[in-house]
Nucleic acid binder design. Structure first.
Lengths: 153, 153
DNA sequence: AGGCAATTGACAATATGTTGTCGAGTGAGC
DNA sequence: GCTCACTCGACAACATATTGTCAATTGCCT
């Protein structure tokens, strides 16, 4: 199997795994009023160390501002986050977790830890790390390729 | 870093890479009238070895029938595929590539090979294979976990 | 034959994410 | 201070994919 074939197989598996992970995350957090996407937003805000704007959270998650904005609007409507005035920028409010948001996120995180331990049973930590490193490198190369002359090929 | 932390990092990277791959595939095939999703449907049909129904293609791709149905309807509208009567099942028609479909898929495949060779430069084939194997195992464990008692946890 | 469970395509509702566009706000350079 | 490029949130349009539901079809079991 050539390198290109191996890469193609990896890509297709990433697509499948992505779908399966989203489904698993949805199931894991459904009764908390969360979904995979909403949970990930809470995580970005919770783990940032400092308050984030919508655009900042989007950068932290690798999504577009617009996608995160929609999720934040919904999360705010459901009381998981609130928008606090930003002293440094009148227009770009800061997304902060409410008590309910912290609570839901903590519950989700607990479940995820148990779940992750379960499904990675028999996996070496090193293998997981190696795979992560490879995917990261691949994505870096891919993004480099895009912004270079790939468009006019 | 614990196994759970390593798994979490891997999961987040899968989400990001998935998004980046979709964007790259869209850019790669835009002028052919394709997208990542449509291209993948053509691939499933082209590589199956035998004619596929919509549900069969969905299974081959790891998506739902409904998602594939929509794409097939659009692809048929654009002349990339056609629906042929299925001798074995009056209701479930067979998806077949048209001449235009074969043409577009071949062009996309050529570009993808060059692209994959470019972005995997410096990656060992073995590393790609190992990562694929790990992701596959992870997904298998995940799907096993779902259908077992994970829902009532 | 007759019934029944599983599969299939269709349709609807919803969630997620992208691109494109716009005006408001910010900050650096002049 | 002015301008100009950049960033930001908002809005709209669209692509992708899921769940839920339904009736038609099929094949198995009795």
């Amino acid at each position: 199997m050539s390198r290109v074939e191996a890469a193609t197989a990896l890509i297709l598996e990433v697509f499948r795994l992505n779908g399966a992970l989203l489904a698993a995350g949805d199931a894991l957090t459904r009764d908390l009023g969360l979904t995979s996407a909403r949970w990930q937003v809470l995580g970005a805000v919770a783990l940032a160390g400092r308050p984030l704007t919508i655009a900042g959270a989007a950068r932290a998650m690798g999504l577009t501002r617009q996608a995160v904005r929609r999720l934040v609007t919904e999360l705010a409507g459901d009381g998981f986050v609130a928008l606090a005035p930003n002293p440094d920028h009148r227009r770009a409010a800061l997304v902060v977790l409410t008590e309910a948001g912290r609570h839901a996120y903590a519950a989700a995180q607990e479940r995820q830890a148990a779940w992750a331990a379960r499904v990675t049973e028999g996996c070496e930590s090193d293998s997981l790390r190696d795979a992560t490193t490879l995917l990261r490198r691949l994505r870096a190369a891919l993004e480099r390729d895009e912004e270079s002359g790939a468009a006019e090929a």
